[in-house]
């Protein structure tokens, strides 16, 4: 289907704006055109797909996010992955992933429940306790559950790092308070590190003084789009099955 020159111009303009700003308010005139013009949406989506990106709109915003595998773009999450890519440092990245996952599980909610507990935020301490409890339970269940070998090995490393190598927290050198940004090798500062990609993209407010992490409405918009969809759930389950099969094949080879 041939697109008009104007559509292509609008499409590219919107795409570049999204690359620049990541999230655009639906009140923007260009966003309004996008909402009304299906062909324009196709152009933007095609451009995004080319770069391994995904565009979606909510009642308030248009978002541009990575597609996961095959994205050509970097962000603070991929930079974190990069930073911990060495064999010995990989466990840091795994731990960060687990912390992000647990944080999301804490703040996520089922759509129709309108109580706003989850939105009040999670204290650093509570999150740290959750991480500890979950790692300990995974460790304990290693024997009876049939966790995959790869998972067990990774969890063992992560648990060692979190439970043994890290101290609980460190105090500020100058003030009488816990310092999470200028210290390292402790649990609370690593929570700060792990959630930094979310904070840098303005999906959460990381209140380092009150040691509280508050989810923002745009984070909920992303959770709704990404994890409240039947298709994504199926895809992820398929990915799990595929990985299992590959592991089987490798063992039998």
């Amino acid at each position: 289907m041939p697109y008009s020159r104007e559509q292509i111009e609008d499409g590219s303009a919107l795409f570049f704006r999204l690359l620049n700003e990541q999230i655009i308010s639906i009140a923007d005139p260009l966003a309004d055109k996008y909402r009304r013009d299906g062909e324009l949406r196709n152009i933007v989506k095609t451009m995004a797909a080319e770069g391994g990106l995904h565009v979606f709109s909510t009642a308030q915003h248009i978002h541009l996010v990575s597609k996961g595998q095959g994205s050509n773009f970097a962000n603070s999450y991929t930079q974190m992955k990069e930073k911990y890519s060495g064999l010995k440092r990989k466990k840091y990245f795994y731990l960060a992933n687990i912390i992000i996952s647990i944080f999301l599980a804490e703040v996520d909610k089922e759509k129709h429940i309108r109580i706003r507990w989850e939105e009040e935020g999670v204290s650093y301490y509570k999150l740290a306790d959750k991480v500890t409890a979950i790692l300990e339970s995974w460790q304990k269940r290693q024997e009876e559950e049939n966790f995959s070998e790869e998972w067990s090995v990774a969890i063992e490393q992560v648990a060692e790092l979190w439970l043994t190598e890290f101290s609980e927290y460190k105090m500020s050198q100058t003030e009488d308070r816990v310092e999470v940004t200028r210290t390292k090798d402790n649990r609370l500062s690593f929570i700060n590190t792990a959630l930094k990609p979310l904070a840098e993209q303005s999906l959460i407010i990381d209140n380092k003084e009150e040691l509280k992490i508050i989810p923002k409405p745009v984070l909920y918009e992303r959770l709704d789009e990404l994890y409240h969809s039947q298709k994504r759930y199926k895809d992820f389950k398929n990915l799990i099955e595929k990985t299992k099969e590959e592991q089987e094949a490798k063992k039998n080879a």
């Binding site: 996010v65 597609k67 996961g68 595998q69 992933n97 998972w151 993209q201 999906l203 990985t243």
Partner: peptide
Amino acid sequence: KKGLPDIELLTDLLAPLFSPTQEFIF
């Protein structure tokens, strides 16, 4: 409940949360 076959899959799960912030390559 069940863990994952490979912990790397967490990356597949979480990466789509983030926007690209790299300089333009388009």
